[in-house]
């Protein structure tokens, strides 16, 4: 049990290391991408080129993925300091944001469906 927990923590440490390296690359080259996204690409590349690596990160990754919403919560709580924005005419901005987001959701999903179906038909 203790050994298991230690193993998961160490694996999360390995994931964190990717984020750290990603951040260094981002700062070094002054890229418009976050260290975390670069870290993710690095992690993916490493898994692809070195197969046994999966064993060293599998448990940690699964634990963290099962609790993803926890890690976003502080960021969403951060919206509270902008409450004034949502008063008065600011409500319009929120409405536009929501409408536009739902248009993206449906539009991109629908485009995918059309292309996917057309390709399946072409293949017969």
């Amino acid at each position: 049990m203790v050994k298991q927990a230690f193993c998961i923590l160490a694996q999360i440490g390995v994931l964190y290391l990717h984020y750290f390296i990603g951040s260094l690359i981002q700062k070094g080259f002054d890229l418009p991408f976050s260290g975390s996204i670069l870290g993710m690409l690095l992690f993916f590349a490493l898994l692809t080129v070195w197969k046994p690596f999966e064993r060293f990160v599998e448990k940690g990754a699964n634990v963290i993925l099962a609790h993803l919403p926890l890690f976003f919560t502080p960021a969403t709580v951060g919206v509270m300091i902008y409450f004034d924005l949502f008063k008065g005419s600011g409500v319009l901005l929120v409405i536009i944001t929501i409408l536009s987001t739902l248009i993206v959701l449906v539009g991109s999903a629908y485009t995918t469906r059309l292309v996917h179906k057309a390709r399946e038909r072409a293949r017969g």
């Binding site: 999360i12 964190y16 990717h18 984020y19 990603g22 870290g39 993710m40 599998e58 699964n62 890690f71």
Partner: peptide, 18 residues
Amino acid sequence: PITELLGAAIVALGYPLF
């Protein structure tokens, strides 16, 4: 501590991708 781990959490998304 949670905010700091957000970076590791986003890195973890590379796993389903793989």
